[in-house]
């Protein structure tokens, strides 16, 4: 049998939720372990096989000078590099620092701020190195992660749609909450979750970040029609994907 591709999983500034999705693939985990050699995955095993790696999954954003260097080393050891989750693809919730002065946060949070060595911003991995594929979501959808790994193994394109959540919402048979009066981010949000929130009668929170062609001003105008004000809009856009360009721009348009 041919050599199994070597898989590495890397963590930067993040909550671990996305890489845990891989451990959470109960039914598929054995198949994953059979298909690839899990060579470097500290969450799963302390045994580390040296690089280079055929496939690297990268979770988390770049927030420290040390990580900015480390990601270069990861890239150098990886033939194919996939970023997973909102932190790695957009900077994560920690990118809220980008809208303020990080020194103020450090002073407020840490007793001895002089020991904190951090960057002024939290940024996506793709702002630092070339990335081969980005899988969005906070957290990522584990079925999509298995799809991406399967596609990598077969040398094909993953079947991961970049259109709006609305398409999934309608495919699922949901009744649109927005048309019934609840503001929803679905029309500008990247599909992938399967429209979970609208299925439970909530508006979409934008966990998967901007869809391929988001028309932000058109959506926020309608939010205002439904009673939202600039502050509501800014808050909803400043979450896990706050630093994704279309969300960032639109939230800044609502600065008062």
């Amino acid at each position: 049998m041919a050599r199994r591709p070597k898989l590495a999983v890397w963590k930067f500034a993040s909550c671990d939720g996305c890489q845990l999705s891989l451990l959470d693939c109960e039914d598929e985990l054995l198949a994953v372990a059979g298909a690839v050699e899990i060579a470097n995955f500290p969450e799963a095993s302390s045994a580390v096989v040296e690089g280079p790696y055929d496939l690297s999954l990268v979770e988390g954003s770049i927030t420290t000078p040390h990580d900015a260097q480390r990601i270069q080393a990861v890239r150098a050891q990886s033939k194919f590099l996939v970023t997973i989750g909102a932190c790695a693809t957009a900077g994560g919730i920690q990118a809220l620092r980008n809208f303020a002065d990080v020194k103020d946060f450090i002073a407020a949070v840490y007793a001895s701020p002089q020991f904190i060595d951090t960057l002024a911003t939290s940024t996506a991995i793709s702002a630092h190195i070339p990335v081969d594929y980005e899988l969005h979501g906070c957290p990522i959808n584990k079925a999509q992660l298995v799809e991406v790994i399967s596609a990598f193994l077969a040398g094909r394109k993953p079947a991961v749609a970049a259109h709006s959540v609305c398409i999934e919402c309608k495919q699922r048979g949901n009744v649109c909450v927005m048309v019934q009066g609840t503001p929803c981010l679905g029309p500008v949000t990247h599909a992938g979750c399967g429209a979970i929130c609208p299925a439970y009668r909530r508006g979409c929170y934008g966990c998967y970040g901007p869809m391929e062609t988001p028309n932000m001003p058109a959506l926020t105008r309608e939010w205002c029609e439904l009673g939202a004000d600039g502050r509501d809009i800014q808050r909803v856009l400043r979450s896990f994907n706050a630093w994704a360009e279309p969300f960032r721009q639109e939230s800044e348009a609502h600065d008062d």
Binding site: A154, S164, P187, N215
Partner: peptide, 30 residues
């Protein structure tokens, strides 16, 4: 174009819209 979200709801609910895509999936074992 300035108003349209490209969200595709109109096409999903339209009773005559017929467009589809096909997704090809291979599993982990290949």
């Amino acid at each position: 174009a300035e108003r349209c979200l490209s969200c595709a709801n109109c096409t999903m609910v339209c009773p005559t819209c017929f467009c589809s895509t096909v997704e090809e999936h291979s599993d982990l074992t290949g």
